[in-house]
C-alpha cells in the first residue's frame, strides 16, 4: 500500500543533473531515511517532495493524489529544517500555532493542540519565550513541535540533529525514535550520518550522485549491500575490499571481495589464507581494530576482534575469513548473489 510515490523524478540546476530519475515508494507510517555523502542530492530530493524545489520531470503522488506541481502550502507536509527556521519575532507558542492560526482554526482547538505538543516535547515552561531565549536543543524541539501540531500527512526532516553537540544528538535521536513510535506518522529523514540512518529507519535509501544505490532495511543494507558503494558506505569501520585472488571457492566473475572487519580473524601463523604484517592496533576497550598490510600486494585490511590481542605492531600474522560472509562484486562493482 503505497502512500507517497516518486515516479522517475528528475531535477536540473541549469546544466547540473542533480536528481537522476528516482523511483521510490513509501508506505504509510514508515520511517524512511535518505543517507549519502554530502552533495549527493538528499536535501534536493526532500525539497522536491516538499514542493520547495520544482520537479523537472516525473510524477509525485501522495495518498492517491498527484501533487507534482502543487504549491508547498497545499501539500499538507511539515518540514523540520536544518537551521530550525523558527520565526524569531514570535514566541514558542506562536511559532507552534502559526500554521493553525493562519488556517483559521478555532482558538480552543489551537490551545489544546499546542499544549499537547508542548507536553510531549517538554516545552511547556518555555511557551512564552522567543527562540533566541532557548538553547539549541530546545529550539530543535520547537521546530519539531511546529510540525507535530499540524498533524501533517508526512514529516520531512533535513539533517535536524547536525547543529547539536554529540551528547544531545544521541539523546534527541532516541527522542525522535520514541516520537515516531508514538505518533506512527510517515516520516522522511535526511542525514549523512549512518548511525542515525541505521538506528531510526524502517527503510534506508542510500543515495549517490543523484541516483538511488539501494533501498532496504538497515540490516539488509548491512548484510547484503547491492554494490561496492553501499558496502563501503554502511558500517564503521568500512568493509574491507580485497582482490578476488585471495579467496577460493568464489564466483568466476568476482573481481573484488568485501569482508567486514568482524568476519576476519587472526589465527596461528601458517593457518590462515592471508598473511601480512600488523601496522596499527587500535584498542577501543570493547573491541580492538587491527590494521594489517598484506604481503606482496601491499593491500590493507582491518580486523575487528573482541578479545584483547596478544600480538604487537610489526608482528607477522595470518588471517582467516568467514566464508559464509563474503560479499563478491563484479567488474562493475555490483554484488554477485
Amino acid at each position: 500500500m503505497s502512500y507517497l510515490e516518486l515516479k522517475n523524478v528528475d531535477k536540473y540546476y541549469g546544466d547540473v543533473h542533480a536528481i537522476k530519475g528516482v523511483n521510490l515508494t513509501i508506505n504509510k507510517g514508515e520511517f524512511i531515511v535518505f543517507v549519502g555523502p554530502s552533495g549527493c542530492g538528499k536535501s534536493t530530493l526532500l525539497r522536491m517532495i516538499a514542493g520547495l524545489e520544482e520537479i523537472n520531470d516525473g510524477d509525485l503522488v501522495l495518498d492517491g493524489n498527484e501533487i507534482t506541481h502543487q504549491a508547498p502550502s497545499k501539500r499538507d507536509l511539515a518540514m523540520v529544517f536544518q537551521s530550525y527556521a523558527l520565526y524569531p519575532h514570535m514566541t514558542v507558542e506562536e511559532n507552534m500555532s502559526f500554521a493553525l492560526r493562519i488556517k483559521g482554526e478555532e482558538q480552543s482547538i489551537i490551545d489544546q493542540k499546542v499544549a499537547k505538543a508542548a507536553e510531549t516535547l517538554n516545552l511547556t515552561p518555555y511557551l512564552k519565550r522567543t527562540p533566541k531565549e532557548l538553547s539549541g536543543g530546545q529550539r530543535q524541539r520547537v521546530a519539531i513541535g511546529r510540525a507535530i501540531v499540524r498533524s501533517p500527512k508526512v514529516f520531512l526532516f533535513d539533517e535536524p540533529l547536525s547543529n547539536l553537540d554529540a551528547a544531545l544528538r544521541g539523546q534527541t535521536r532516541v527522542e525522535i525514535a520514541e516520537l515516531h513510535r508514538d505518533l506512527n506518522a510517515t516520516s522522511i529523514y535526511v542525514t549523512h550520518d549512518q548511525v542515525e540512518a541505521m538506528t531510526l529507519a524502517d527503510r534506508v535509501v542510500v543515495l549517490q550522485g543523484g541516483v538511488i544505490e539501494q533501498v532496504g532495511t538497515p540490516m539488509e543494507l548491512y548484510e547484503a549491500p547491492a554494490n561496492k558503494f553501499v558496502a563501503q558506505f554502511i558500517g564503521q569501520p568500512q568493509m574491507n575490499l580485497l582482490s578476488a585472488s585471495y579467496f577460493s571457492g568464489i564466483s568466476a566473475d568476482a573481481v573484488d571481495v568485501g569482508v567486514r572487519p568482524e568476519h576476519f580473524s587472526i589465527v596461528d601463523a601458517g593457518q590462515g589464507a592471508i598473511s601480512g604484517q600488523v601496522e596499527l592496533i587500535e584498542a577501543l576497550g570493547n573491541e580492538t581494530l587491527i590494521h594489517v598490510c598484506l604481503e606482496g600486494s601491499g593491500e590493507k585490511l582491518i580486523v575487528r576482534q573482541y578479545e584483547q590481542p596478544s600480538i604487537k605492531v610489526r608482528d607477522s600474522v595470518s588471517i582467516n575469513y568467514d566464508a559464509s560472509h563474503l560479499h563478491q562484486f563484479d567488474a562493475k562493482g555490483e554484488a554477485i548473489r
Partner: peptide, 15 residues
C-alpha cells in the same frame, strides 16, 4: 531575510 524561514512559512500554508 532568512530563506528557510520563508520556506517554513510557506509549508505552514501562508500565502
Amino acid at each position: 531575510m532568512d530563506r528557510e524561514q520563508l520556506e517554513a512559512a510557506e509549508m505552514d500554508g501562508a500565502n
